[in-house]
Simulated assay, not measured.
Amino acid sequence: MTRRIVVVTAVHAPSARFLPDAYASLAGQHLPGGWDWHWVIQEDGTSNDVAPHVPADPRVTFRQGRPGGPGVARTIALSEADGAYVKVLDADDRLAPGALARDLAALEADRTLGWATSRVLDVLPDGSTLGFPGDPEHGPIERGAVLDHWAAHDFLSPVHPATLFVRRELALALGGWMALPASEDTGLLLALNSVSRGWFSAEVGLLYRKWEGQATGQAAHLDKAERAARMAVIEARARALATFRWSYPDRLDPLVHSHGPPRGGEHRDHDDFRARRRPGA
């Protein structure tokens, strides 16, 4: 596997106009020597509205396909994932300076970590930013910590799945993003937390754009019956995985080293936390 980070972006026509901003944030990332990135942009559909916004850069791959939602788009984009790691970047968001290097450093330094997340700032329509006071402390997140918090806090995750950085083979082993109309990224995050330790960076890793057209702001996203069904299947999958003997990494891996006492944290749900945190959001 190449020393490459594959940045995966699902996009549809309404959010395509934000791609240049996402690209600028990605182009400004600095990686250690020998490492590079490959941006895979997967349109959820086959319109003529997205391609004009795709940057002309040999490090960028643009694909289209029949619509199936962002989870399907991201998962099929994994066919182009030619690197050791996968990083999520939504089309309307921006990476903070140094985000890729920090994620990479955490997982390269500790083989027992399967994934990483980071602090998020909401970017409001007026350009101001808003953080979240309940972030966990900087450091490792033990298996089950995210699931336990999510289940105890009305399905609000303590870490944001839009910041996910994950080992490619681990994401593939879990089937990628869940086949759900929303919360598909939270489903993957909780599955990851059920089988592997993770990492949280207290430094800002993502600027999360709040705008009128985003999916989490639509009325359908807040439908109570659908939300209950989404949460039920997400939790059932995560708990089923937790009961199996399989985990990452293999307990017999001689390269795995010991660690100190567990340190967990509180995080939030990409869809439900961000959509419901503020009135009118």
Rank of each mutant, 00 (worst) to 15 (best):
L31A: 03
W211I: 01
Y23R: 14
G260D: 07
R277Y: 10
L252W: 15
D49F: 06
G260T: 03
A229D: 08
R274P: 05
A22R: 13
H270E: 15
H160I: 09
V40Y: 07
E226N: 08
D122E: 12
R237I: 10
F273W: 12
G265E: 05
L19F: 04
R168M: 03
K224M: 08
F244Y: 12
S47C: 05
V233Y: 04
K87N: 12
L100A: 01
R74G: 07
F132D: 07
E80R: 08
S247E: 13
R74L: 08
R237L: 14
G264D: 14
R3Q: 15
L222W: 15
Q214M: 14
G34M: 01
K210P: 01
G187L: 01
A56D: 14
P181W: 00
L26G: 02
W37E: 01
R274L: 15
H267S: 09
Q42N: 07
A96I: 07
R143H: 04
D271P: 03
D126C: 11
L104D: 00
Y208H: 15
L188I: 00
A162R: 11
G45A: 03
I76L: 12
Q29P: 08
A202S: 15
T46D: 12
L156Y: 15
F273A: 02
A162Q: 13
R276S: 02
A171L: 13
T2F: 02
A228N: 01
A225C: 04
P14F: 13
F200V: 04
A236L: 06
R276W: 05
L26T: 03
R63M: 03
S47V: 05
P20L: 02
V72W: 00
G144P: 13
D122R: 14
H259I: 10
D185C: 05
T9E: 03
R251A: 12
R197T: 07
E137V: 09
L241D: 09
V86D: 02
R111I: 15
D269E: 13
T243V: 07
L31M: 09
L78Y: 05
V6D: 13
E137F: 11
R119D: 12
L252Q: 15
D122L: 09
D185Q: 07
R274A: 13
D93K: 06
L100F: 01
H12G: 08
P161Y: 06
R4T: 15
W35P: 05
E226V: 08
R119C: 11
R239E: 08
W35T: 04
H267A: 11
L156W: 15
L130D: 00
A51M: 05
L31G: 00
D253W: 05
G71M: 08
H259A: 14
W37N: 10
P181Y: 00
G131S: 12
A220H: 11
G264M: 07
R230Y: 07
S47Y: 00
H259T: 14
V40D: 11
L147P: 06
V204I: 04
E266I: 14
G280R: 06
